[in-house]
Simulated scan of single mutants.
Amino acid sequence: MDLVFFNNTTLVWLTALGVAAAVMLALYVTKKVVVHHLRRLAERTETRLDDIAVETLDATRMFVIVVMGLFAGSKLLVLPEYVHQLVTRVAIVAGLIQTALWGNRALRAWLTEYYRNRSDEPGRATSAAAVSFIARMVLWIVILLMILDNLGVNITTLVASLGIGGVAVALAVQNILGDLFASLSIVLDKPFVIGDFVIVDKYLGTVEYVGLKTTRIRSLGGEELIFANGDLLKSRLQNMTRMQRRRIVFSISVTFDTPRDKLAAIPPMLTEIVKAQQTVTFDRAHFQGIGPASMNFEVVYWVESPDYNRFMDIQQDILLQIVDGLAARDIRLAYPTQVLHTPDLRGAAEAAAAAAQRNAAPADAHGGVLPARRA
């Protein structure tokens, strides 16, 4: 026990090893016990935070426990200053790596719970994946910089260099970065999600995929439309899936020769036909105006459903009943016509011929017309 190795007796070495083993065992048992009890508690609660905590603590690595035990044991030894600094730095690096592993596992567990709770909302899952990826990337970059700083590297110069290089790279790939941030805006603000039917300018279709750079839409014709995320945010976009009710405006026209009493009967007829429909809210029906070739009536109503097929069924039934109602009242629908009015020129032609004949006959002394002489 009195033998000296590296300025420490055998008893001191054995004591240091005992302390290291005890610390390792204590840390390992603490991890197992805490994780076990937290897991049992998580099974009895509805909140997901304890599940994430269990997953996070379960990510504690054995090599970190070993390093921490050896670090604790080394404090009992008489070692050169540089050895103490080395052991301390190794312990700090191990602690930082373990912190990064905890954060990475927590983000993954949160993403898993997010997917599970929103399996019917794929757009939200996409946003969670993007945010989780960026958060984990930032976490590892920060941990790496802290490790380099702990090892004595001058990270100020490194960060400054990265800043200058980052500006150059950002200028070179500004379109890609613009689409990346646009994708984050899409997944966080959620103007649409996967499965929504949207109209972008003159294009329309169902959203199939929201990526980091592009969004893909399946058009009604079957082809896939690919939009850059930046361009998509700059466009006027209509999300038809989020429509709660549909406003319908249509008009009918009847002929000019329709009597006034029949014109007055048309709005009540239209009102009755529309109100008789299911899931429809009537707004108005009026004699709108007099057109170039017709008397025009306008009808406005709401379909209390965004389903386009339902709207077409209702509109079809309304139009068929309007045709029957107009026919029963002997009212004709108008169509584009032009009437050309010309004056009657036959009377004028006969008068002109008589005048010409009078001018051609010889007159007597009293102004009368003399009979023509025979040869």
Rank of each mutant, 00 (worst) to 15 (best):
T342V: 12
Y28D: 12
D179M: 08
A16S: 11
T337A: 05
D307R: 01
M1H: 11
E81P: 06
I252P: 04
T10Y: 13
L263H: 01
L232S: 00
L263E: 03
I226A: 06
I322N: 00
T255H: 07
F250S: 03
P306D: 01
A372W: 04
Q288R: 10
I273K: 12
I134H: 06
P80C: 01
A170I: 01
L27N: 01
I266V: 07
Q85V: 14
A349F: 13
V138G: 10
V78S: 13
S219D: 03
M312S: 07
G289Y: 04
T30N: 04
R284A: 11
L204A: 15
G205S: 10
V303S: 06
T88W: 14
S119E: 11
Y308E: 12
R373L: 12
L79R: 08
E55I: 09
R108H: 12
K275Q: 00
S219P: 01
G165L: 06
A351F: 13
A106K: 05
I252Y: 05
Y209M: 06
R216E: 15
V210M: 08
D201F: 02
L319I: 05
V323P: 12
T342W: 15
L162V: 05
T88F: 15
A135G: 05
R116Q: 08
A20M: 10
V173N: 09
Q98D: 00
A172R: 15
T241K: 02
V193M: 14
T88Q: 14
A72D: 00
I92W: 07
E43A: 08
